[in-house]
Structures are given as structure tokens and as C-alpha cells.
Design a protein around this nucleic acid. Structure first.
Length: 872
RNA sequence: GCGGACGUGGCGAAAUUGGUAGACGCGCUGGCUUUAGGUGCCAGUACCUCACGGUGUGGGAGUUCGAGUCUCCCCGUCCGCACCA
């Protein structure tokens, strides 16, 4: 055994051993208790970033820990390989997305291997492979048959210069990222998946997801947004024809306060009114400016214009003006809203801006209404009662809604309705690098699904996008086909699927990747659902909700037997780092932390920073998420080469608990490296005596008086570490390992005495605790010290309850809640004895003297609190 | 705008259920070892105070014998918002 810790060598040997033995290939053995541990698969962007390293280290620690508990653990890996960045790279350097993606996968796979993750590579998949995405297409066809997939028009961002659809990300301050042209909204036909059919089930089932963080469940529930309300109509007459303007409201109790209606710019009534109103037409045109992102729509200045049209209030019969509002969304409900300025904050502001009437119809006793200033109680449905509302006066919210809904229903003008905020999932993308939608357009037969026996519809892999629309449209060899129905010449759909489709079911495919006949098989029933899923909180809604939906569609198509894909969910925090910059005339140029030297005062407080290159000061810009734009990224590869994978893993686990953001620190990495070097040094020092005991099969524990205190400490720390492992709080597990190393390192090397026995036990515990986190060094030392062959199969160390027993315990004594003393009492001391000891403590008496004892609180095993007051 | 989180020493953090705030590590200070070192080892390190003691978990109130933890209000930071993945 080398005196020096040489991680590169240790890690190479350990990885070779695992590869040679197929250690991480998970057998499909239904008789064994399984554990499916899955980290969100990466987009193959080129290189791993620290976020990946953190994600996969967490998953790997769980995987190895569960394996040591004896479970049959599956941890697969694959590639979310379709997507926009590959097209951007193609535009930048002319390489086809397929080739770029393939190269990136090859490189990143090497990186993952170098980190020593316990991955079953025999199940690797990539979503850009036809063997994978053919099943996207196949299930899409099933959804068409069930009416879950359907076609309707949708609104997209349109770049009028490049004549292309833009992703929200490609819209910067309302302009196209490449052309700088103001982005417009444009309606195009798209395919949708009816996730709203499952809205209620997706909502209800959240209750049963005990293994999910409550905040994620809350976010999903809010996203689905179930609301009870009333859908009703304002009748109108126009051009001699009768029409109805439909709206939805959750506040039907305020219907008597309606002073106008607002419709979306795309609403038919708006279009009709604009026909002979050029000013309105111009306003509607202006509403088309800007992108479709909801955050932008919700924060724009609210603008409107009257249409000149009027509709009739369904209950009062009064005329109501119709406005066009840029804040009303066509894709939402009916694209029109009733406006009650007195009791809706947004309507209130709009009415103030445009001088529209505000009519109070709700009051809260003791509160005074003013139409000049909004107050929160105006919208308080819990405290309000109807006023100025004729027959509804005096009714509270629920009663008023019931009465009004009944009257609307009697007139045939409305009814109660449950509405969801959740919208159906538009999956059509006007992009090349994605899964083709298996549809053929025939002049005679219309849109015809591609028959199953013609799947997959294979994407040509040699296109190079140029930013002007989808290059597939120019690929005649792809587009030209014959109609599956009538045989006439026809054209293929060139839209591809949203990449969220690819990632909505990959977890199931890992279980049966080699099945060329079916999307899933009975191996899926063994492994699914995923027992532990790990990924970024940024996926809390979309990816996770789509996956829950997709799983239910698969269930209803007979492909899986579970309802939910992920039993337990861990949302890991971001990896952040300090930023440094110089400001040149308002333009910031960022310095990588590696190129900056930090200055401190003699208390260690940071006082400034200078660039290494020129020694001149740079500004400290604050902690930010690691990113290219802030140049504060740390390259995992360089760290692995310098310190070894185990050091990177130890630091990543130690620096913060998994859910919290992790702040990168170079000196923290040094600390992790130091810890492993000290561990190595300790193992070298004790190798001979410990290996001798192991070789002799001598596993007796040290029982000398000296060892008793040490074993008490050893097993106390072990107990805490096992508990923290169980709740996946790995930072304190590392801390426990460090404590153990400090404990073992304090023992004098004295072979032949109780020390060797204690070290044999202690090192055995320490190595097994550390094995999931620093697997290579644990693997190596386990063998070198003669404990056995494969530490992963050694099981978890067990707490010796006898070692934890104590004759005497220490208790804290408080006087009025303030710490005043400590006492030692026998472990079995009763309340009276403890109280007497506490009152007898000299320092405690200083604070109780001359006072009256009112109360004594004894918390067993922890403290005594004496409550005293000045003597009466 | 809507929804969700977070805030503890110079820094990352710890403190399962309300019960000794700051474990463990980084940094810093002092010492020792080394030909030397940006290595290693030892000691100290929340703040104020000579001390007794006091103060301290973003700010303010409340519940409690006792609050980092529970309740309410405020401030600040971060994440998501449906075509980034």
C-alpha cells in the first residue's frame, strides 16, 4: 500500500474492478426487493457542469446506500438529446445537430465514468434514437385514437424578419434574439394533448404523494388551479343577429357591480368592431406586438380601448360597454371577462386609468368604501355581504353565488362550472431537432395518422438549421410521401414534438430498453415506479406534471400498472459561486473566480479582490448561479483531474444539504482533499495490526476501560450518521465521518493492545459510512485492510446499543430559561434527585438566593429549568 | 402580476419532535516541524466586557417556564410561469 494517497490510481483501479465485474448491472429479479433510483437525465450540452455533478452525486450516494441496505438497486443513465441548443450550435459552426449531439454524449459519458457513478450503462438510451422516439410516435397515435391528442390553433412568438417561430427564451425584451426585430404573436395550427382531462386526478393524487416535498405539491396544485365559478353570457344584438358574450367568473356575487366587459384583442367581437373603426384596428394590431410569455403578459401596462359595442347585463338588462383589453388572454376560458372595478384590483386600476364607473356591491361592516383608493377588503369574499344588489342584498359570498347562478340558469344564460387554470399541452414545435409528429397531409383525405407498421418516422440526421424556419420543410426526400389512406402523393408533417414529450416517460423505457416490439413489458412492472427521483427544483411543475400525466395515459393504454411515476422526490438546490467583474463604461466584464485573488483583513473578513493577471482590483458582484454569462463556473473535469472524484464528491455532499443551494469554495475542496489524505494516512499507520486481526477472523471489540469512552463516542456518532443517511442529509454524514476520523486519529498507534481492536472496529465503521460518498477510496482501503472484497456488499455498520449506555448523565440547569450550571446525575436518577442536585449547584444558588421558587421543569436527559420570582 | 422557497459567526453550515445556539469544515491568529514551501501537526477563534456578566439566529410584535424552531406583520434575496432544459 502506497504511503501517498494517489486518487487517480485508486479511482482507475476501483472503476476497472466495477466494470469487470458488472457490479452495477441491475438484474431483473422480481423475487428481490428493488430500489429504482433515478436522477434527471442530462441534456448533452457538451460538458458536465457542477449542477450535473451535484445531481448525480446525490443519486449515487442514495444508490450505494440503498444497495448496502441490501436492495436490488437500479440506477440508469441516458440523454435528453433533442432540443434547441443543438440547433443553435449548428447555426454557429455548421455541424449537424445529430453529430454535435453524438460527440457531446461521448465526451460527457467519459466524464460521468470518471466520477465513478454506480450506473447501469447496459440500459443507456438517448431520446434522439429512432428506437426510442418511435414510441413517442406510437403513443401519440394511441392518443389520437382516444381523442387525447387533437389539433387546434395556438399562439406563438413570430420573428417577422427571420420568418420563424421563436422560443420564449429567444425573445429578449420583446425582440428576436438574432434579428432584433419586435416579436409578434401569430396563430398557427398545432397538436395538443388533453392534460386537462386528467386535471382532477392529477390534483387529487397529490395528497397521496407523501414522498414529495410539500412545496412542490402546492406549486402543482396551484398550477392546476381548480376553481369553482359561474360561466354566463351577456346577450347582444349586432347586425340584426343575436349573440352572446360568454365569460367565466369566480365572483358571481359581484355581478351587480359589472360596469364594463373586456375582450381579448383576438376576440371575434373585437375584430367585428374594428371593421369600421381604424383606431381600434390599430390598437388591436398593437396588441399583437410582443411575445406570448405569461410573465410578460402579466406585467405589461394594462391598456384598453372601447369597441363602441354594448352588450346587455343578464340580470339587470342594463347596457354594458365592451372594451378590448391587452391583458385579456384569448387562450384562457372564453377570451372575455366581466369587469367589476369595485371588487377586483386589476379592474379597479383599469377603471381609474380610463375613468370608468366604479360601483360598490359588497360591503364589510365597519369599513368605508372609497372609489379613489383600493383596499384589500374590497375583494374579501370571506367577510363581505352584498349591497346595492337588489334581491341579493345581505347575502354572503356562497349564498349570493348560488342565488345568482340559479337566476342565470333560469334565464338560460349561465351555469355553475368548475374551471382549471391548467391548459392543454401544445406539443407542436416548428423545429428540426425533435421527434417527427407522425402525420401525413393528403389533399383528399386530410390529416392522416401514419400506420403503426410504418413507424418510426425517421428524422433525417444531416440537416443544418440556419435560423430561417424548419429545414425539414426543404427536405423533399422527407416531406414527399404517399397517403397511407388513398395512396395519392402527400406531404409529411414537419413539426416535431416538444422535448418534454421525450422526458415524460424515459424512466419507464430504462426498464426495457432492448424491447423492439413494444413500448414497455413486464420488467417495467417490477421496477416502476421510481423509488427516488432527484433533480432540480426548476422542474417542480412542468416536467414532473407532464410525467405524471403521461404515466396515466400509459396506464390507461395498458402499458404500466402504476398511477404515479415517482414515489419519492428530492429537489436539489443550485450550485452558486461568487462573481467578480470590472465595469467599463456601464459594460460589465466578468472574471472567473480562478483568475481572482481575494484579500482579507486579519479576522479573515474579505476586504476586496484583485485579478491575478494584472494585480488590479475587481468588483465583488455577489453570489450567483453558475453560468456562462457571469463567468463564475467551475469545471468539474479540472477538479477531478487535480483532486480526484472522491474529493469532489465529498465536498459536494459536505458543503450543503441536498435541497439547499451550494456555494462553491476552492478552499472547501482543499478541506475535503485534506480529509481523505488524513484518512489514507491513518489507514497506512494501522494497516498491519488491523489486517492481522482481520486475517485471523478476530472481530472481538476492545473492552479496556480506555476504550469504553471511545466506543461510546464511536457508536454515538454512528447512530447519528445512520439516521442522517436515512433522511438523506449527507452533509452531516460527512461531518460524522470527519468526527470519526478525528476520534480514531487521536488513538496512539500501539499494536497488540486494545487500540488495534478499537481501530479495526472504528475503521470498519468509518469506511462503510463513507463508501457511498467516497466510493473509490473506501473500496481500496477496505481491501487493503483485509475487511473483504467488495465493501458495497458488506452491509451497513450496526450500532452497539451496549456501547451507548452510560452510568451518569450530564444535565443543564437553567434559572428562568438562562443557562446557569451543569450537574452530573446517575442515569436512573428520579425527578426529586435531579431537582435536588440542580438546586444544590453553587452557581445556580447564586441566582436563586432570596427568590421564591415557583416551578421546576425537568426535561429528562436534557435540562432542568428553575422558575423563580423575587420573594413576595 | 401570480405561485413557491429562503434569511443563523468573517464564510459554508449544525441544532429530527420547541429544551445547552454555532457541531463539522473553511478562513483567520499564535506556536511547532520541515533545506524550503502555497505541506503537515498543536492551540485559539460569535459579539461586547479587565472581570462578574450581558447581548446574539434579517426587522418588529405575540404564544410559552423556555423560540433559530410555532403565530402575525414588515424587509431583503432566489426559483418557476406553459416554446430553455
Amino acid at each position: 500500500m502506497d504511503d501517498q494517497y494517489l486518487p487517480a490510481q485508486v479511482e482507475r483501479e476501483a472503476q476497472a474492478s466495477w466494470d469487470d465485474n458488472g457490479t452495477f448491472q441491475a438484474p431483473d429479479e422480481p423475487s428481490r426487493e428493488k430500489f429504482y433510483c433515478l436522477s434527471m437525465f442530462p441534456y448533452p450540452s457538451g460538458r458536465l457542469h457542477m449542477g450535473h455533478v451535484r445531481n448525480y452525486t446525490i443519486g449515487d450516494v442514495i444508490t450505494r446506500f440503498e444497495r448496502m441496505r441490501g436492495r436490488n438497486v437500479l440506477q440508469p443513465m441516458g440523454w435528453d438529446a433533442f432540443g434547441l441548443p443543438a440547433e443553435n450550435a449548428a447555426m454557429a459552426n455548421g455541424v449537424p445537430p445529430a453529430q454535435w449531439t453524438r460527440d457531446n454524449i461521448a465526451y460527457m459519458k467519459r466524464q460521468l465514468r470518471s466520477l465513478g457513478f454506480a450506473l447501469d450503462w447496459s440500459r443507456e438510451l438517448a431520446t434522439c434514437h429512432p428506437e426510442y422516439y418511435r414510441w413517442n410516435q406510437w403513443l401519440f397515435l394511441r392518443m389520437l385514437e382516444q381523442g387525447i391528442a387533437y389539433k387546434k390553433s395556438g399562439v406563438v412568438n413570430w420573428d417577422p424578419v427571420d420568418q420563424t417561430v421563436l422560443a420564449n427564451e429567444q425573445v429578449i425584451d420583446g425582440r428576436g434574439w438574432r434579428t432584433g426585430a419586435p416579436v409578434e404573436k401569430r396563430e398557427i395550427p398545432m397538436y395538443y394533448l388533453a392534460i386537462t382531462r386528467y386535471a382532477d386526478e392529477l390534483l387529487e393524487a397529490l395528497d397521496g404523494l407523501d414522498g414529495w416535498p410539500p412545496q412542490v405539491k402546492t406549486m402543482q396544485a396551484n398550477w392546476i388551479g381548480k376553481s369553482h365559478g359561474v360561466r354566463f353570457a351577456f346577450p347582444y344584438e349586432l347586425d340584426g343577429e343575436e349573440g352572446r358574450l360568454w365569460v367565466f367568473t369566480t365572483r358571481a356575487d359581484t355581478i351587480m357591480g359589472v360596469t364594463f366587459c373586456a375582450v381579448a384583442a383576438e376576440h371575434p367581437l373585437a375584430a367585428r368592431a374594428a371593421r369600421d373603426n381604424p383606431e381600434l384596428a390599430a390598437f388591436i394590431e398593437a396588441c399583437k406586438q410582443g411575445g406570448v410569455a405569461e410573465a410578460d403578459l402579466a406585467t405589461i401596462e394594462k391598456k384598453g380601448m372601447p369597441t363602441g359595442l354594448q352588450v346587455t347585463h343578464p340580470l339587470t338588462g342594463e347596457p354594458v360597454d365592451v372594451w378590448v383589453g391587452n391583458y385579456v388572454l384569448m387562450g384562457y376560458g372564453d377570451g372575455a371577462v366581466m369587469a367589476v372595478p369595485a371588487h377586483d384590483e386589476r379592474d379597479f386600476e383599469f377603471a381609474l386609468t380610463y375613468g370608468l364607473p366604479i360601483r360598490q356591491v359588497i360591503e364589510v361592516p365597519g369599513e368605508a368604501f372609497s372609489d379613489q383608493a383600493w383596499q384589500p377588503w374590497y375583494a374579501d369574499k370571506a367577510r363581505g355581504f352584498c349591497v346595492n344588489s337588489g334581491k341579493y342584498d345581505g347575502l354572503a359570498y356562497l349564498d349570493a353565488v348560488d342565488a345568482i347562478a340559479a337566476d342565470l340558469a333560469a334565464k338560460g344564460l349561465g351555469e355553475k362550472r368548475i374551471q382549471y387554470r391548467l391548459r392543454d399541452w401544445g406539443i407542436s414545435r416548428q423545429r428540426y431537432w425533435g421527434c417527427p409528429i407522425p402525420i401525413v397531409h393528403c389533399d383528399a383525405c386530410g390529416d392522416v395518422p401514419v400506420p403503426d407498421d410504418q413507424l418510426p418516422v425517421v428524422l433525417p440526421d444531416d440537416c443544418v438549421p440556419d435560423g430561417h424556419g424548419n429545414p425539414l420543410n426543404r427536405r423533399e426526400d422527407f416531406v414527399a410521401t404517399t397517403c397511407p389512406s388513398c395512396g395519392a402523393p402527400a406531404r409529411r408533417e414537419t413539426d416535431t414534438m416538444d422535448t418534454f414529450v421525450d422526458s415524460s416517460w424515459y424512466y419507464a423505457r430504462y426498464c426495457c430498453r432492448d424491447n423492439t416490439e413494444a413500448m414497455t413489458d413486464d420488467r417495467v412492472d417490477y421496477w416502476m415506479p421510481v423509488d427516488q427521483y432527484i433533480g432540480g427544483i426548476e422542474h417542480a411543475i412542468l416536467h414532473l406534471l407532464y410525467s405524471r400525466f403521461w404515466t396515466r395515459v400509459m396506464r390507461d393504454t395498458g402499458l404500466v400498472s402504476c398511477d404515479e411515476p415517482f414515489t419519492n422526490l428530492l429537489t436539489q438546490g443550485m450550485v452558486v459561486a461568487e462573481t467578480y467583474y470590472r465595469d467599463d463604461a456601464g459594460k460589465k466584464s466578468f472574471f472567473n473566480p480562478a483568475d481572482v485573488e481575494v484579500q482579507r483583513d486579519d479576522k479573515g473578513k474579505i476586504t476586496g479582490a484583485v485579478a491575478r493577471a494584472d494585480g488590479l482590483p475587481v468588483e465583488i458582484g455577489g453570489i450567483e448561479k453558475m453560468s456562462k454569462s457571469k463567468n463564475n463556473g467551475v469545471d468539474p473535469q479540472a477538479l477531478v483531474e487535480r483532486y480526484g472524484a472522491d474529493t469532489v464528491r465529498v465536498f459536494t455532499m459536505f458543503a450543503a444539504p441536498p435541497e439547499q443551494s451550494l456555494e462553491w469554495s476552492d478552499s472547501g475542496v482543499e478541506g475535503a482533499s485534506r480529509f481523505l489524505k488524513r484518512l489514507w494516512g491513518l489507514a497506512v499507520a494501522w494497516q498491519a495490526p488491523v489486517a492481522a486481526l482481520n486475517a485471523a477472523g478476530d472481530v472481538a471489540v476492545a473492552d479496556a476501560t480506555d476504550a469504553r469512552a471511545l466506543r461510546h463516542e464511536l457508536h454515538g456518532v454512528l447512530q447519528q450518521a445512520l439516521n442522517d443517511y436515512g433522511r438523506y442529509q449527507f452533509n452531516t454524514v460527512v461531518s460524522a465521518c470527519m468526527k470519526l476520523l478525528n476520534l480514531l486519529g487521536g488513538v496512539e498507534v500501539n499494536p497488540g493492545a486494545w487500540q488495534a481492536r478499537f481501530l479495526r472496529e472504528g475503521l470498519g465503521i468509518l469506511l462503510r459510512l463513507l463508501a457511498p460518498i467516497a466510493p473509490h477510496v473506501a473500496h481500496h482501503l477496505w481491501r487493503e485492510l483485509g475487511y473483504g472484497e467488495e465493501i458495497l456488499d458488506a452491509g451497513l455498520p450496526e450500532v452497539d446499543a451496549a456501547a451507548l449506555e452510560r452510568d451518569e448523565i450530564e444535565l443543564v440547569v437553567q434559572v428562568n430559561g438562562k443557562l446557569r450550571g451543569q450537574i452530573r446525575v446517575p442515569a436512573q436518577a428520579d425527578r426529586a434527585a435531579i431537582e435536588a442536585a440542580a438546586r444544590g449547584d453553587a452557581n445556580v444558588q447564586r441566582f436563586t438566593e432570596g427568590k421564591t421558587l415557583r416551578k421546576v421543569i425537568v426535561v429528562p436527559g436534557r435540562l432542568v429549568n428553575l422558575v423563580v420570582t423575587d420573594a413576595a
